[in-house]
Design a protein around this nucleic acid. Sequence first.
DNA 1: CGATAATATGAGCAATAACTCGCATTGCAT
DNA 2: ATGCAATGCGAGTTATTGCTCATATTATCG
Lengths: 215, 215
Amino acid sequence: MLARKPQTTPRKIASQARAHATVDALVEATARILVRDGFDRASTNRIAEAAGVSIGSLYQYFPSKESLVVAVIERHNRDLMTIVNAAFVDAKDKPLKEGLALLVAAAIDGHRVDPALHRVLAEQTPRSGALANVELFQRDAYGIFRSYLEEHRDELHIEDLDLAAFVCVTSIEALTHTAVIHRPDILAEERVDQLSEETSRLIFGYLCRLDRLIR
Amino acid sequence: MLARKPQTTPRKIASQARAHATVDALVEATARILVRDGFDRASTNRIAEAAGVSIGSLYQYFPSKESLVVAVIERHNRDLMTIVNAAFVDAKDKPLKEGLALLVAAAIDGHRVDPALHRVLAEQTPRSGALANVELFQRDAYGIFRSYLEEHRDELHIEDLDLAAFVCVTSIEALTHTAVIHRPDILAEERVDQLSEETSRLIFGYLCRLDRLIR
DNA sequence: CGATAATATGAGCAATAACTCGCATTGCAT
DNA sequence: ATGCAATGCGAGTTATTGCTCATATTATCG
């Protein structure tokens, strides 16, 4: 446990290539150990050992265990958002229905990049202290999706764009996230397309307000 | 930390009223301390103190800190499912659209019973060890919803009932959960109905396959 | 009342793990 | 080459905390 609150704020900025390699090795090792041993058993000593780095060096670049985990989450988030952002670019030209299918597919792909790590980060990493405001899904996904909706405004009949973005992004994320974490069967090769199809339909129907067509 | 793996399995069963009171006080205190101090700072000693019970008594009924938290989660789950189950009963007679609205409203109500506790359990309670398989939303919600869908089978055009239940329950839970945790603004008195309305529409459109009406 | 079982107590043990610090090594610039 | 800064090292410190156990109190029953 904590000896006392860390008084110094180490985290030197690496200026030499050697130091950069050390930092990378530490982040990489943290991810590996988190997956292998779980959050509780992932001690800083063990992480340092796995990185082939001394515990002293670890604390030169990372002021706390939390900060290491933050780095891992940020990297994981970056990977996910790279895929999602690319999908937004692809979706831009396409008609709504097709575009949505691309976005849903990207969400699924993104969550499948490193499911084991995703699970540990989601289930075992307590959001307290430095991690309190770190989310597994970037906040800006809502904003980006909102912009996407704005581009299709004429096709749609939406009053509250923010709320619509909230509903869509939250649903898509939850469906892919929950499938990855709790329902691997749904993600089996033969069935992924079904999930993808259903999710797209869910969102498409909602956005087009197809309920206008009936009374 | 663990001295060694708890070798005995305490958890005597309380036979006298006095002991029952002790057990209740401990569960209640655990919830209070979790909310007040967070999971990490919720030590067994502190919980015992808050319950007005000695640490020794605590370990007579709960073999570990984890088991205390499990008890809190189970109680929280029970409260939530009581509300949801009641809604299923109410929804039985009503037409689909109305029934869905009731279920969504119940999900929101359920998540608002003790939002602070819900947040701690969701964000800070690591799912490892005894907590590995404890979910915040009962697994059987999927089954119950599936039965509900079966009753409305003739109105609907669904091939895979299981998948449909997964999509609906996961979406409803995520929307209410995320709103409670991250978007208190959406749950403001004037706006809850809007969320409720949008969520119902999302699910209703999906279930009725309103996309059949267009090509 | 007296005996036995149930319940309650809390000081202290044991283990762990986050973090420090003095010193060694390596790289860079002049 | 030489000096200085950057980087690396790891044994040890220290606070925390989950948990035990010997003992004391209270309830139940014949």
